[in-house]
């Protein structure tokens, strides 16, 4: 079950999208998100969807994998759809007891749902095609100008790298502890909300204990490997813009311009 979470996971295929500079991709995703929130008709969304599909195809990431990443969000997407359908006043299509679905609501609801799906696919495309370290390098490099006003760019990037590095480890551990507690008769899946939250205690306590021990070890290992902050550090991989980066930026920005100004 926890294996389904694909957010923050890298899926290397060596495609052009993978090879783009992380800064290009981060900027592109920003433009993409802004577009999603500014665009307000289905036609435009169709256009965006085609664009996203194209990106997925070029990136060679299997569609199945992308859809799998959406699964944990099914509930939120359905919830958004329903709330909107029921809550917005307008021309009634179907009535179920005191509730009624309106045409405007359904329209607005599907609109929000599509927006959410696009948002998730777009951002996960960024993490799927970019190795976490390259991604954090990109963020660090984009934040670097802000160092002068006291933004700890290197530290933030390092924190993100470590978080990303430990996501799989901690997920695996959660799975293990869950199984161990289930073997002792713990029940995580049934009962009232309160009962279920209570059953999380024997899961979270060992998880936190172990996470703190790991943090302790890691800090020591990093010190032993001469880590002393960003000062004087060199990098094996240096970020560099290529022609393809300019092409990508031009495509994304012009797409935004067409949708916004037409």
């Amino acid at each position: 079950m926890l294996k389904d979470i694909t957010i923050g996971q890298h899926y290397p295929t060596g495609s052009v999208v993978h090879k783009l500079d992380p800064r290009t991709k981060i900027i592109a995703v920003f433009v993409f998100i802004i577009t999603l929130f500014l665009v307000d008709n289905f036609m435009a969304y169709g256009f965006v969807a085609v664009f996203v599909l194209l990106c997925i195809m070029i990136s060679k990431i299997p569609m199945k994998y992308i859809i799998k990443g959406l699964k944990p969000l099914t509930f939120i997407i359905l919830f958004t759809l329903m709330i909107n359908s029921f809550m917005i006043a307008g021309e009634i299509i179907i009535s179920i007891g005191p509730l009624s679905i309106t045409k405007e609501g359904l329209y607005q609801g599907s609109f929000m749902a599509v927006r959410l799906i696009m948002l998730v696919i777009g951002t996960s495309l960024l993490t799927l095609t970019t190795s976490p370290i390259t991604l954090t390098d990109g963020i660090e490099s984009l934040l670097n100008p802000l160092k002068k006003i006291g933004v700890p760019a290197h530290e933030l990037a390092m924190m993100m790298t470590i978080a990303l590095r430990f996501i799989p480890t901690l997920l695996e551990e959660t799975d293990k502890i869950m199984k161990a507690q289930m073997a002792r008769g713990a029940d995580f899946e049934s009962g009232s909300l309160i009962k279920r939250s209570k059953s999380l205690v024997p899961l979270l306590v060992p998880l936190f204990t172990s996470a703190f021990r790991r943090a302790d070890d890691l800090a020591m290992a990093m010190e032993a490997r001469c880590y002393r902050g960003g000062e004087g550090r060199t990098r094996m991989k240096q970020l560099k813009y290529y022609k393809r980066d300019f092409v990508a930026i031009v495509i994304v920005v012009s797409m935004f311009a067409i949708l916004y100004f037409s």
């Binding site: 890298h10 190795s131 976490p132 370290i133 790298t161 470590i162 990303l164 590095r165 480890t169 021990r213 790991r214 070890d217 890691l218 290992a221 990093m222 490997r225």
Partner: peptide
């Protein structure tokens, strides 16, 4: 697990 920093 606790001493590997990189994700690759």
């Amino acid at each position: 697990d606790n001493q590997i920093v990189g994700t690759i």
